[in-house]
Amino acid sequence: MLSIGELSDRTGVPASTLRYYDDLGLVLPAARVAGQRRYTISSVTDIGLIVYFRDVGFTLAEIKHFVSGARQSRRELVDRKLKELVAQQHRIQVALDALEHGRVCPADDQMKCPRLRSIIEGHQHGFSVQESHARAH
């Protein structure tokens, strides 16, 4: 059995975060000794899974659902996250394109760039940044 400090040392996750994970029901101590949490060695792997999924973009609520869910539910969660990340990737690419244009814009003053003004006007008229950017090209 590992104390919360030992689990923290083995995973690199602060003890305060481990307590928070316990409060959320993500990683529960196997026992309490004199009021202190004690974890099984498998908790190291459980924490690794949580950290991995958090790092690839899952929320803690999604991770809890993934860990406790059925196989089909997990697949649906992964499919939904993939769609979300693809949409985010597209928004980032549009932003990169817009910033790259701003960096190489032939206008003396970027604030007077007709393309940038067109994108902003489109956005003010209710178009998304992506739509405004597409209309300006």
Rank of each mutant, 00 (worst) to 15 (best):
L2V: 05
S3L: 09
S3P: 05
I4Y: 01
I4D: 04
I4A: 05
E6M: 01
L7Q: 00
L7I: 03
S8T: 01
S8Y: 03
R10Y: 10
G12S: 04
V13T: 12
V13A: 07
T17D: 01
Y20M: 07
Y20T: 02
D23P: 01
L24E: 01
L24W: 00
L28G: 02
P29F: 04
A31S: 14
A31T: 03
G35N: 04
Q36D: 09
R37L: 07
R37C: 00
R37V: 00
S43R: 05
D46L: 06
D46H: 07
I47A: 02
G48L: 02
G48K: 04
F53H: 12
R54Q: 12
D55P: 01
V56K: 05
G57F: 13
G57Y: 12
F58H: 08
T59I: 05
T59K: 09
E62G: 11
E62T: 06
H65G: 09
H65E: 11
G69T: 10
A70T: 09
E76Q: 11
L77I: 12
L77F: 14
V78Y: 09
D79I: 08
D79S: 02
L82K: 12
Q89I: 14
I92G: 10
Q93D: 15
Q93R: 14
V94E: 14
V94D: 13
L96H: 15
E100F: 10
E100K: 14
G102V: 07
D108K: 07
D108Q: 08
Q110T: 13
Q110E: 14
C113E: 06
C113W: 05
C113L: 04
P114M: 07
R115A: 14
L116T: 11
I119G: 03
G122F: 15
G122Q: 13
Q124E: 15
H125V: 06
G126D: 11
F127P: 01
S128E: 08
E131H: 11
